[in-house]
Write a protein that binds this DNA or RNA. Structure first.
Length: 509
RNA sequence: GCCGCGUUGGUCAAGAGGUUAAGACGCCUCCCUUUCACGGAGGAAUCACGGGUUCGAGUCCCGUACGUGGUACCA
């Protein structure tokens, strides 16, 4: 098959973009790009009751941040427009009617109350299945049981109805999943799913099949939760377009909660203190903001990287992959079958690695914004970059640059006097007074010169430099952290260094 | 309940019949660094369990347990 590879990501605009969603996009994207194919984003907004304003724009913002650019979509255009299912409503009905005509589907007039009654009845009868299927359909209110005239009469009267697929019992539906291999479904266990809803909208089942066909999708990768309904989709392909043009399937494993059991949800993130969404999501109904990976300080490179290796690896020891490497090395058949528990510690490790790996210019603007939102105006770009270079290896998340580097811009707010007080004595005090005198006269001001004079004075006073470096650090930084202390003094400059030493000295006395 | 899918250290995982069962995160010890971090050395798993098949099984088959998904006019 030399057909051009075409994949799609088909989100519903119902809220924040979940980790698992991004990974689904990513695997689709990687596969498409690896095979020089197209990546399509189709909005599946067929459930009007769940529609959320802003969710669609938000999804595209997330994709943009992640660097996963669609080739075709509602915003990028393309030859198969419209890419929003609500705007394709008329198309689906034609296919649904066609199925009815060919005997593969039927009209059903059952009201929700009647459906409820049916299930209750099945339950009391101790039936193993509560499904609307060949066991019960001939006792329901549908065009299979009704006479043709009766059906027509109901239709003419404008009675609400749905169109359901007619699943024939005692059959098997085999298909190949790129990740799971051969799978075989017994039609006795699949129900007569609704294809077209009473409001005229298609359900997911009809819409995916029709759109995947119309948009010439060659590979359909989606979450594992779709596996049980795969036989319905395959039957639809068979009846509508033929199995020979059906895309190849792959059902991706789920991302699970780190503790306990179950699928990772937004609530778990709130509970355990880490994000689950790609970017901040603000619920238009409640105005509640849910934190995103971007906003807590993740780099998109790291986010993509950690998602890619959650459920996939190339079989080597490599763990750090750029998007280019992922495109080159990705292989859908090496994706795991089992779900993976999400580990936020490891996620942070990826970010740390990417902060170290990337040039600071890559994320300079974001760090600058963090400093400015903390009240530090950045007037000298090179100075901030120098600071970033100095502290980057101790930063895991972008806001760490502020906590690790704010003292390069202003005197520490709190000084950990307790760390020097116990070992403080007159000799040390005199040392610092002498140091101040020397440094005040100093015309040169760089790390190595400062260290030399520092050591000379220490030696002259018969003091160990080690016992003096910690106090100096506390004076300049406020605490026991940061890069080399002379590096710091050299960077913040003569005036700041002297002021801070004097200040702390006055606190000790 | 029924149906599907899955199960290698706390977590992510390599492994496609014969290996001392990789590596990473986290944890612990040590080295480097008279801060913190980076970097380096080292420590901890018999592969869910029970049966098979085989000269030989983490790797193949069956069963059980556990987990997970579905069972909507939601996707």
């Amino acid at each position: 098959m030399s057909q051009k590879v075409r994949v799609r990501f088909a989100p519903s605009p119902t809220g924040g973009l979940h980790l698992g969603g991004v990974r689904t996009v990513l695997f689709n994207y990687l596969f498409a790009k690896k095979h020089s194919g197209d990546f399509i984003v189709r909005i599946e907004d067929t459930d009007q009751s769940r529609f959320v304003v802003g969710a669609e724009t938000y999804i595209f913002d997330c994709l943009k941040w992640c660097g996963l650019t669609p080739d075709e979509s509602v915003v990028h255009g393309g030859p198969y427009t419209p890419y929003r299912q609500s705007e394709r409503k008329v198309i689906y009905r034609q296919y649904a009617e066609q199925l009815v005509k060919n005997g593969h589907a039927y009209y059903a007039f059952d009201t929700p109350a009647e459906l409820e009654k049916m299930r209750e009845l099945l339950k009391t009868k101790g039936s193993s299945s509560l499904q609307y299927d060949h066991h019960v359909r001939m006792s329901m209110n549908n065009s299979l049981r009704l006479l043709a005239e009766e059906t027509q009469h109901l239709l003419d009267a404008g009675t609400p109805y749905v169109i359901r697929i007619k699943i024939l019992p005692n059959d098997f539906i085999p298909f190949k999943d790129l990740i799971r291999g051969d799978i075989n479904f017994d039609t006795n266990t699949v129900d007569d799913k609704v294809l077209l809803k009473a409001d005229g909208m298609p359900t997911y089942h009809l819409a995916v099949v029709v759109d995947d066909f119309l948009m010439k999708i060659t590979h359909a990768f989606r979450g594992e939760e779709w596996l049980p309904s795969a036989p319905v989709h395959i039957l639809l392909w068979k009846h509508l377009f033929g199995l020979d043009v059906m895309p190849q399937w792959a059902h991706l494993p789920l991302i699970l909660k780190p503790d306990g059991n179950g699928k990772l949800s937004k609530r778990d993130g709130d509970r355990l203190g880490f994000p689950v969404y790609a970017m901040d999501w603000s619920d238009p109904g409640t105005n509640e903001i849910t934190k995103g990976f971007k906003e807590i300080g993740f780099l998109p490179e790291a986010f993509i990287n950690l998602l890619a290796v959650l459920g996939w690896n190339d079989g080597t020891e490599q763990e750090i992959f750029s998007m280019e490497e992922l495109i080159e090395k990705f292989n859908i058949e090496k994706v795991h079958k089992g779900g993976a528990k999400f580990d936020f510690e490891k996620a942070k490790w990826f970010n740390h690695e990417w902060i170290k790996k990337l040039a600071v210019a890559h994320y300079y603007q974001r760090v600058k914004n963090i400093f400015e939102s903390n009240g530090i105006d950045i007037t000298d770009e090179n100075y901030l970059k120098k600071v970033m270079e100095l502290v980057k290896e101790r930063c895991t998340l972008l806001p760490d640059f502020y906590t690790q580097g704010s003292f390069f811009f202003r005197a520490p707010v709190s000084i950990d006097i307790a760390a020097i007080q116990p070992k403080w004595d007159d000799k040390k005090n005199l040392f610092f007074i002498e140091l101040l005198k020397t440094w005040e006269l100093s015309t040169l001001w760089d790390a190595t010169d400062l260290e030399v004079s520092f050591r000379e004075i220490a030696a002259a006073n018969q003091l160990k430099t080690g016992e003096l470096m910690l106090p100096l650090r506390i004076m300049l930084v406020g605490g026991k952290f940061g890069p080399g202390v002379f590096e710091i003094a050299g960077t913040i400059g003569k005036e700041a260094t002297i002021t801070r030493i004097e200040h702390t000295l006055s606190l000790i006395e």
